[in-house]
Simulated scan of single mutants.
Amino acid sequence: MADPYRVTLVCLGNICRSPMAHVVLEEKLTEAGLGDRVVVTSSGTGGWHTGDPMDSRAAATLSEAGYDPSHHVARKFTIDEYAENDLILVMDHSNEADVLELAPTVEEQQKVRMFRSFDPESSPEDREVPDPWFGDEGGFTRVLAMVERTSDALTEHLRPTAP
C-alpha cells in the first residue's frame, strides 16, 4: 500500500481551532472510507500549551456534537512539519505568516493553504477561522459549524488525492 496522504492543521496554541478541525476532519475521512489513506495531525505556532489537552470549551462543543475530543495533546509546529506533510492548513493569516516563515524552501511554501479556502461559504476576503478563546461558548459553536462544512468539502477534495 502507498504511503498515506498527510494533512496537518495549524492554529495559535493547538487547543481550540486546529484540534477541533483535526477531530472533525479525521471523523469525516473515516466516514468516507479514507481514514486509512489520509493521516491528520494538528499543531500550534506557539508552544506554551505543548502537552496540554484541548480547551475544555472546545472539547465540550465537540462532545455535544458527537465527536471524541479525548485523545488530543497540544504540540508546537516545527520546520519538520514540511517534510512530514503533504498539505498544511492554517486557521488565520497570522498562523499563515508564522508557518511560511519556517518553510525550508519556496517550493515547500506551496503546501500551505488557508483551511477555509475549502469552505463553500467563504470568500477571498473571509478565509479565517475566528479564534473563540476569548469569547463565549457561542464562538466554539460557530467554529464547529465552519469546521464541519469545510471538512466535508476537504474530504471530497482529498478523495482523489489519497493513495
Rank of each mutant, 00 (worst) to 15 (best):
E125Q: 14
A103Q: 14
H157P: 00
G138E: 14
P104H: 08
E31R: 12
A2I: 06
S63W: 05
I88V: 09
L100S: 10
T155D: 12
R149Y: 08
S56H: 11
P4Q: 00
D80T: 10
S63N: 12
K111Y: 09
V143A: 15
P163Y: 04
L158A: 12
A60P: 03
P69W: 02
R127G: 00
Y67L: 12
A58V: 04
V7Q: 05
D3G: 11
M91A: 14
P120V: 03
V38C: 13
I88N: 03
G138P: 04
G51R: 08
S56R: 13
S42K: 02
D52Q: 15
S122I: 00
S42Y: 06
H49R: 06
S18T: 07
G44C: 11
V99Q: 09
E64V: 06
A2K: 07
V23H: 01
D126V: 06
T78I: 01
P124G: 12
F118I: 00
V40F: 14
E108D: 15
S18G: 07
R37L: 15
C11W: 01
V112L: 04
G35M: 04
T155A: 15
D126T: 15
L89A: 00
D92Y: 09
A2L: 07
E84V: 13
V23M: 01
N95R: 03
S18P: 05
T78C: 08
G51C: 12
S123Q: 10
V143Y: 12
V143N: 14
T8N: 02
Y5L: 11
E96Y: 05
D152W: 00
T45F: 04
D119H: 07
S18R: 04
G135L: 10
A145H: 15
L100T: 06
V40Y: 13
A21W: 05
H71K: 13
A59E: 04
A83M: 06
G35Q: 05
S43R: 11
H157G: 02
S94P: 03
V10W: 04
L62T: 06
F118D: 08
V39L: 06
P132K: 06
G33V: 12
K111T: 01
E128K: 11
A97S: 12
T105C: 00
A97H: 04
Y5W: 09
A153Q: 12
A74S: 10
Q110S: 15
Q109S: 12
T150S: 04
A32K: 09
M54A: 11
A162M: 09
R6D: 02
V147G: 04
M91I: 02
V38S: 07
D86E: 12
I88W: 11
M146F: 13
W48I: 09
G139F: 07
D80E: 15
D80K: 14
T161C: 09
D119C: 05
S63A: 15
V10M: 05
P130V: 10
V38Q: 03
R142P: 03
